[in-house]
Design a protein around this nucleic acid. Structure first.
Lengths: 191, 191, 191, 191
DNA sequence: AATGAATGAGTGTTCATTCAT
DNA sequence: TATGAATGAACACTCATTCAT
């Protein structure tokens, strides 16, 4: 019940933030979108910022499947390509790409958001590092000197293309997607 | 003279935007930082958004040296690595990384900013594509199916790490930098 | 039971009003201080104003002992000095001085509070007038032309110094107290 | 010019504070009363509190004549009575009595107001102490052990009656006034 | 080119109170 | 009696922009 109320507000806020941006969205916009009164919003959240923080926190749940994916058995190289493709699909959905951008921009000056955001990414990163190391150990992937940084680089690649796709800088998605996966594969393949 | 006034305002605005963010900065803040009166700012810019647009436009100038760099003669593989390193240095400076983030976030809902921003990147991209094709032709770099996308991917990589460095997600910069350049080198080296 | 609930709320309200002032105190503050729910407060009082009215009404009880004191037998001059001292002790307690100030300020625009407040004072005043007249009749005190006004003046004196003591405008209390009692004694002594 | 704008706002604020009380007055009320826009008020004052602070500061000017009065030559006893009467006339004007009450109530929790208020009173107090000491030296007034406290007591008396007159607790003003002056005279006359 | 007073819509937030449970 | 979600008007204050000087 109470949970559903918060969820309702969070979903309304997401819609608003995506449509107008965090700073351009008023608390009134969120309340109206949620169909509740302005004052009532404050019975569920301490303020506008708390709503954004909740959104950031909820991202962790969305990332969990990918982490599970990365930890599954199988050929590391194939797993890496599969992950990159799946994560690209996820991150490339406009609502995800734009909300991530909104959160990163806010994280710059909001330590709470930054911490939540970093925490979310950390889980994904750790799983990816695990895969890279396993791949290096088994000789199926090039051994990286700094797997942690390589993992970050892979996420950057995927998220970067995802964002560009949404911003309209990438015309045809299919070739771009193929090129990206190819790039990663070549970068990590054994010589 | 008039130009120097505009420049003064632009610099003040940059300082404000970096310190507080675009939306959190008031026109009053910019005028105060520039040491001019509020009303006078409107004699030089049509409004707050025009100041940001000018900042976006001025970025083109900063990118020109890198374009020249990319077009210079020499071994494409070495040129690519050199470019990546130099561009990482540039993009990794806090003022550049944060301003780029600010501009990207604004570009999402501001077509004028988006167009300027895309134009700036296009120059860099074209030069990078030229290098990739030249490398492919000469057999010094792996031939990519879609060089345009590969070029984008390289810029994403560099800019992504640059941003992470500023956000504090990258502890030691030197190994991260090495890993990044290595990643690019492996991704594009001939098999 | 019900009475104790009201009392609990009144005490919580007093604490809040003294700490933050009447207008700066929210009904939520009172409920929280009382440890009850917001809605439940309205089962016991019709609103915030009614709580203040109750506080004003309860002041009458605090004043009763002084009235009794004034009506006791004995030398009027000594009784007057004794009363002034005792009343100064009472009125000088921070909670009393500040609550009186809060009530007076509110009484200006709230007839109900004004009436209650005046009623409380009236009892004290009448007793004091009785003492002055008795003192005048017996020749132990100077006969005043308008004992009612003189009584008011005496109360003003005591309450004024009490308030000043709380506001920190009176450094040492003991000499101030002596001076005040002396002042009253001289003003009313037979020539 | 600018001064007249501030003055206009101060006068509007006075009218509002007297009519509705400080906390019940909104900044919009003040702006409307002054006939200016809401935002413009903030070009002249940093906020609502600053307006009240200015009002408190301006009180000093109103008190100056009384200080001059007290420092004039002549019989101390007569001067004292004359001062008390004149100050009673001043303090008894509704706008003065009510604004003083408003300021005292606010001073309890606002150190800035408290300091200004105390400063204003200090000037009056010092002059009054001077008169009492001069009266004591010349044998025209009873010598007080603590003239500073006696001076406070006299001001309390006058201000107390002034406030009561405004609150309607004093029916006929003339006898009350006479009684008050008589009270002071007796309290300080030589035995 | 320069000033800063002027505007009023807009901001996030708190308010006293009601009401279904 | 008790709860706390719900309401929307009210709050002090900031905003980008205009304009007379």
């Amino acid at each position: 019940m109470a949970e559903s109320r918060k969820q309702l507000i969070v979903e309304a806020a997401c819609a608003c933030f995506l449509r107008k941006g965090y700073h351009q969205t008023g608390v009134r916009d969120i309340a109206a979108e949620a169909g509740i009164s302005l004052g009532n919003l404050y019975n569920h959240f301490s303020g506008k910022e708390a709503v954004l923080a909740e959104i950031a926190a909820l991202e962790a749940g969305d990332l969990a499947p990918f982490i599970a994916h990365l930890q599954a058995e199988g050929d590391p190289a194939a797993a890496l390509t599969r992950f990159a493709g799946a994560y690209l699909d996820f991150a490339g959905r406009p609502e995800n790409a734009l909300m991530t951008l909104e959160l990163v921009a806010e994280a710059v000056r909001n330590p709470a958001i930054a911490a939540t955001f970093a925490g979310n990414r950390q889980g994904l990163l750790a799983a990816l590092v695990g895969l890279l190391e396993q791949g290096g150990d088994s000789g199926r992937l090039r051994r990286c000197a700094f797997p942690a940084e390589t993992a970050n680089v892979i996420l950057d690649l995927v998220e970067g293309q995802a964002l560009r796709a949404v911003l309209g800088e990438v015309a045809q998605t299919a070739p771009a997607r193929a090129e990206l996966l190819d790039f990663i594969a070549h970068a990590l393949q054994v010589a």
